[in-house]
Measured scan of single mutants.
Amino acid sequence: VAKRKCPDHGLDLSTYCQEDRQLICVLCPVIGAHQGHQLSTLDEA
């Protein structure tokens, strides 16, 4: 199974943004649109 990539940063989608209910990469909460959002690992989601 191919991993999905972040459209903004090109990295694997490895984190779940609880606020926006979507998968994001590790850079999205650091330099992207998900700064300050509640996050979960994929195992927790």
Rank of each mutant, 00 (worst) to 15 (best):
V26Q: 15
C28L: 00
L39M: 14
G10R: 05
G36L: 04
Q18W: 05
S40Q: 13
C28V: 00
D20L: 02
K3E: 13
D20F: 00
P29L: 06
I24Q: 03
H9G: 00
I24T: 09
R4V: 07
Q35T: 10
T15S: 11
G36I: 02
H9D: 00
P7Y: 04
S14R: 07
L27T: 04
V26A: 14
E19M: 06
C25I: 00
L39Y: 06
K3N: 09
Q38E: 13
E44P: 13
D20P: 00
L13Y: 05
C6I: 01
G36K: 06
D12H: 13
D12E: 12
V1K: 12
L23R: 12
P7N: 02
P29K: 12
L13D: 02
C25L: 00
H34M: 02
A33W: 05
V26G: 12
V30Y: 05
L11E: 12
D20T: 04
C6D: 01
C17I: 01
C25G: 01
L11T: 05
K5G: 04
R4G: 09
S40D: 10
K5W: 03
V1P: 06
V1R: 03
I24N: 03
L39A: 11
H34N: 02
T41G: 13
V1W: 04
G10M: 08
P7M: 10
D20R: 08
D20V: 02
I31P: 03
H34L: 00
T41Y: 07
L27C: 03
Y16A: 04
C28N: 01
I31E: 15
V30C: 08
A33G: 11
L13R: 07
Q38K: 14
L39K: 08
H9T: 00
R4S: 09
L42A: 14
T15C: 05
D8Y: 15
C28Y: 00
R4L: 08
R21G: 14
Q35I: 09
S40M: 07
V26M: 11
H9I: 01
E19G: 07
L13S: 05
C6T: 01
I31F: 06
C17V: 01
L27K: 15
S14A: 12
D12G: 07
Y16G: 03
P29F: 04
V26L: 11
C28A: 00
S40Y: 08
H9V: 00
C6R: 00
V1H: 04
S14T: 13
A33S: 13
T15Q: 14
L42Q: 15
L42T: 15
Q38Y: 05
C17A: 02
C25D: 02
Q18P: 10
C17Y: 01
A45V: 11
L13E: 06
L23W: 12
H34F: 01
L27R: 14
Q18Y: 15
C6S: 00
G32T: 03
R21I: 03
H37V: 01
A33T: 13
I24M: 10
L23F: 05
L13G: 03
K3G: 09
R21V: 04
V30E: 13
L27H: 08
V30N: 09
S14C: 07
I24D: 03
Q22I: 07
D12L: 05
V30G: 05
